[in-house]
Design a protein around this nucleic acid. Structure first.
Length: 510
RNA sequence: GGCCCGUUCGUCUAGGGGUUAGGACGCAAGAUUUUCAUUCUUGUAGCAGGGGUUCGAAUCCCCUACGGGCUACCA
């Protein structure tokens, strides 16, 4: 009988969650939903020194923005709480002590300074110091000290830690759900600290204890944890939980678009794209990091692009709703190699999802932008109509202004290149004649203007090519924009004529 | 340095013994749009290298190279 699927996303609140973290959360979420399981959020704040205020709220808000709402966890309730490790502090020692009692761990009294000295010494010798099977018998711990002395030291309040006693020369093999069989020899592993001098467990202990207590069935996490998998497996064994321990799946890392290494905090600013889901302002340094949300990405686009970073459905489908992702997701289709993030493709996803949003929704965004610029948005129906006409030129909501501002504000300048290329000696005269002709029109509706204007042009024997771009220049300021007759209609007769005459004054041909 | 993981177009990837090595982003060209963008069509470009195994390797094995991760009383 299979156990209920329960997975967790377990970030540590040391700063803003970056997109790699969001992807880990996403894959956990998809896996849980697909298997009808539970998705939990556990906050791993065992390192008090690295705690950053606001980070936890940031994580929760990010998950919500992406639609990855946990079934249990900090801020979401549940029967396995508390879900913040700092609030679980009291439960870990007993397990560490149990490990000492059954010979799988030991007390160690070496101070950080002493260990640093040993590391420095080894380094000078071109070696590496490791607290392991070869060195532990030369160090200060309950393996080398008599029971009395150990008790005495503890009683005297000397700082101590509890270290895992890594077995000698045994092979740990695990079938990773993504990588397949992975083996490690314990001879190359060291005696990790499980319980710190400050009374808190380290990640390794807390993680194993909590996953067990919370009945986690699958640990889906980043590849940076792959090398600690043998330790964790050995811990489950030493604690007697081997039969119920979770299965492991290690996700490939997200790499920088260019250069070496994994995607990092500062890459975004350097390369012009966000690496965080939401804008983050560092409470200490005051530094600010851009976010996908504030940059105008839609959550469905962000989720979609993240899902395709290291996973695919096995066919040519690239566009997925959350429901489709849940339907299609499986861990065995997760790729093993690291994925270089491509900001260009991210934009392509956003463009797609932006087009899917209703015009009314986009018009609200446009209205806000106009208000911020102190420009009257005017009639709602007209605004929606404009949005419908210009949206296919937009990738982000902010592009609406770039491609639609001329409907609300007359151009302040005229593109020089277009002038020199398209504004001929006789252009001014023709435009004045056209403006005068416009004044005579009664029916100012795009289709009708087109008809009347065509007749006028025929009669004058002028070609469209000679005047269309100059008129566009007068109305828009550049050679861009939607169909000119639609612009006439949307601008209105008076404004159209006013802009043409204004351009005639400003643009002087030599 | 040690341990572990990885390597198919520039990027994300499909393909797991016999394929004209497929798709997407990007880029380029053409068509449409009397502008620009969109859209459509076409094109561009790849199995890291070397050894095996095999009638036959992108696919299986080994080596090398390269990339990545870990190597804290951080997660």
């Amino acid at each position: 009988m299979d156990r209920k699927v329960r997975v967790r996303f377990a970030p540590s609140p040391t700063g803003p969650l970056h997109m790699g973290g969001v992807r880990t959360a996403l894959f956990n979420y998809l896996f849980a939903r697909k298997q009808d399981g539970d998705f939990l959020l556990r906050i791993e704040d065992t390192d008090q020194n690295r705690y950053v205020p606001g980070a936890e709220d940031y994580i929760i808000e990010s998950l919500k923005w992406c639609g990855l709402v946990p079934d249990e966890g900090v801020g979401f309730g549940g029967n396995f709480g508390p879900y913040r490790q700092s609030e679980r502090k009291d439960i870990y020692y007993k397990y560490a002590e149990q490990l000492v009692a059954n010979g799988n761990a030991y007390y160690a009294f070496d101070t950080p300074d002493e260990l640093d000295a040993l590391r420095a010494e080894a380094e000078a010798d071109k070696g590496v110091f490791s607290y392991d099977t070869h060195t532990r018998l030369k160090l200060k711990n309950s393996l080398t000290l008599s029971r009395d002395i150990v008790e005495e030291k503890i009683k005297a309040g000397e700082p101590w830690v509890i270290r895992f006693r890594m077995p000698e020369d045994t092979v740990v093999t695990e079938n990773d759900l993504i990588r397949g069989e992975v083996s490690f020899n314990t001879a190359s592993l060291d005696d990790k600290v499980l319980f710190k001098a400050d009374g808190m467990p380290t990640y390794h202990l807390a993680n194993v204890v909590d996953d067990h207590l919370m009945q986690i069935s699958h640990v889906i996490r980043g590849e940076e944890w792959l090398s600690s998998m043998p330790l964790h497996i050995l811990l489950y064994k030493a604690l007697g939980w081997e039969d119920t321990r979770p299965r492991f799946a290690h996700l490939p890392l997200i790499l920088k678009p260019v250069g070496k290494g994994k995607l990092s905090k500062r890459d975004g600013d350097k390369m012009g794209f966000p690496v965080f889901p939401l804008l983050w302002k560092d409470p200490v340094s005051g530094e600010q990091y851009r976010g996908y949300r504030e940059d105008g990405y839609l959550p469905e686009a962000f989720v979609n692009l993240l899902a395709l970073l290291g996973w695919n459905a096995g066919n040519d489908q690239e566009l997925f709703t959350m429901d489709e992702l849940i339907q299609s997701f499986s861990l065995d289709r997760v790729v093993k190699s690291g994925a270089r993030f491509d900001p260009e493709k991210a934009k392509w996803f956003n463009r797609h999802y932006l087009q899917q949003r209703p015009d009314a929704w986009l018009s609200e965004s446009f209205r806000k932008q106009l208000e911020e610029k102190d420009v009257a948005a005017g009639d709602q129906e007209r605004l929606i109509r404009i949005v419908g006409l210009i949206k296919d030129r937009c990738t982000f909501p902010a592009d609406l202004w770039e491609h639609g501002s001329y409907f609300f504000v007359a151009p302040g300048s005229y593109d020089e290149k277009t002038i020199s290329k398209r504004w001929k000696d006789d252009t001014s005269g023709k435009l004045q004649a056209i403006a005068d002709f416009f004044k005579s029109l009664d029916n100012w509706e795009a289709e009708q203007i087109k008809e009347d204007f065509s007749a006028f042009m025929n009669q004058k024997e002028w070609s469209f090519g000679q005047v269309m771009v100059p008129i566009r220049l007068a109305l828009v300021g550049s050679s861009q924009g939607i169909d000119l007759f639609l612009i006439f209609g949307l601008l209105g007769k008076e404004e159209t004529i006013r802009r043409i005459e204004k351009a005639l004054q400003v643009i002087k041909t030599a």
